Amino acid sequence: MIDFEASCLPEYGQSFPIEVAIARTDGDSRAWLIRPADAWKYWDWSEEAEKLHGISRDLLEEKGLPLTQVVAEMSEFVHDCNVYADADLDQYWLEVLCHAAGSQVPFPVHYLGEFIKKRGYTRAQVVSALDEAKNRLPKEHLAREDAKRLAMVVKLLLDQPPEGLSY
């Protein structure tokens, strides 16, 4: 699972990625703060978004990693996995990141809903897994926690057969 935090939501302006995290269903995860590209200098920043995720421009300048490093390390971390997200915005922010880094998008981001539908899980099963994952990982709007929670949802679903199927 992949999750991005951004400078603002696209409906509030031209946004750029500031943090990305990837979590596997085996519990392994990585997160990267992203040093803004020079090209993003005049792109939009939302104080409201900053309050949600707690990441300031100063923190990004101080602790953010170079774009090329983030893309390379992400690619290495997911080399043998399919990558899913719960929103199409994550694919958009991956594309923005890679464009600014001067690199190709290293992997596609699939929509989690397609995985759930293809596997035949019911709404009740998904809601139950989401509730359990939120109970275990309640912090929101932090890329690492959001990605870990989504990976936990998938793991919980994989640990049970879709309704109507027995193994």
Score class of each variant (00 low, 15 high):
residue 44 D to H: 14
residue 2 I to A: 07
residue 35 R to L: 00
residue 82 N to P: 12
residue 43 W to C: 05
residue 9 L to A: 08
residue 131 D to Q: 15
residue 5 E to G: 00
residue 6 A to V: 08
residue 146 D to W: 05
residue 149 R to V: 03
residue 144 R to P: 06
residue 126 V to N: 04
residue 109 V to W: 08
residue 151 A to C: 04
residue 8 C to F: 14
residue 133 A to Y: 01
residue 83 V to S: 13
residue 35 R to S: 04
residue 70 V to G: 02
residue 88 D to N: 07
residue 118 K to V: 09
residue 110 H to D: 07
residue 126 V to C: 10
residue 119 R to T: 10
residue 152 M to I: 03
residue 67 L to W: 00
residue 107 F to W: 15
residue 20 V to S: 07
residue 107 F to M: 05
residue 115 F to H: 08
residue 59 L to K: 05
residue 90 D to P: 10
residue 13 G to A: 13
residue 99 H to P: 00
residue 42 Y to H: 05
residue 35 R to A: 04
residue 104 Q to L: 05
residue 35 R to W: 04
residue 41 K to M: 11
residue 46 S to Q: 09
residue 140 E to T: 04
residue 138 P to T: 14
residue 93 W to R: 09
residue 46 S to D: 04
residue 9 L to I: 07
residue 29 S to V: 07
residue 151 A to L: 02
residue 68 T to K: 15
residue 11 E to M: 12
residue 141 H to G: 09
residue 35 R to E: 02
residue 128 S to N: 09
residue 136 R to Y: 00
residue 7 S to D: 03
residue 115 F to M: 10
residue 69 Q to L: 14
residue 100 A to G: 08
residue 64 G to A: 09
residue 17 P to M: 06
residue 31 A to Q: 11
residue 104 Q to G: 01
residue 143 A to C: 13
residue 32 W to R: 01
residue 162 P to I: 11
residue 72 A to W: 08
residue 52 L to F: 12
residue 137 L to V: 10
residue 85 A to M: 03
residue 24 R to K: 15
residue 83 V to A: 13
residue 104 Q to C: 01
residue 142 L to H: 12
residue 157 L to F: 01
residue 122 T to G: 15
residue 88 D to C: 05
residue 11 E to I: 12
residue 79 H to F: 09
residue 63 K to A: 02
residue 23 A to L: 04
residue 99 H to C: 05
residue 34 I to C: 05
residue 152 M to Y: 07
residue 26 D to C: 02
residue 74 M to S: 03
residue 36 P to Y: 01
residue 144 R to Q: 11
residue 20 V to G: 01
residue 64 G to I: 14
residue 137 L to H: 03
residue 121 Y to V: 11
residue 1 M to H: 12
residue 14 Q to D: 11
residue 15 S to Q: 00
residue 92 Y to D: 07
residue 112 L to R: 11
residue 146 D to Q: 15
residue 79 H to A: 08
residue 129 A to G: 06
residue 104 Q to T: 13
residue 12 Y to G: 00
residue 72 A to V: 10
residue 13 G to M: 15
residue 22 I to P: 01
residue 165 L to V: 14
residue 77 F to E: 14
residue 47 E to I: 03
residue 116 I to S: 01
residue 5 E to P: 01
residue 98 C to W: 08
residue 65 L to V: 04
residue 24 R to C: 02
residue 35 R to H: 02
residue 144 R to S: 15
residue 156 L to Q: 10
residue 126 V to H: 15
residue 135 N to S: 11
residue 52 L to D: 10
residue 122 T to E: 12
residue 42 Y to E: 12
residue 83 V to M: 06
residue 37 A to W: 00
residue 71 V to G: 03
residue 106 P to E: 09
residue 117 K to R: 15
residue 42 Y to F: 08
residue 144 R to L: 11
residue 7 S to W: 03
residue 165 L to W: 15
residue 161 P to W: 11
residue 140 E to M: 01
residue 150 L to I: 07
residue 128 S to G: 12
residue 122 T to F: 06
residue 53 H to F: 12
residue 152 M to D: 06
residue 134 K to F: 07
residue 123 R to E: 02
residue 66 P to Q: 05
residue 56 S to K: 00
residue 55 I to C: 13
residue 133 A to M: 02
residue 21 A to Y: 00
residue 153 V to L: 03
residue 96 V to Q: 04
residue 26 D to L: 08
residue 52 L to Q: 09
residue 88 D to E: 08
residue 128 S to A: 14
residue 56 S to Y: 01
residue 115 F to K: 04
residue 163 E to K: 06
residue 19 E to K: 11
residue 120 G to Q: 05
residue 103 S to M: 13
residue 26 D to F: 13
residue 100 A to T: 13
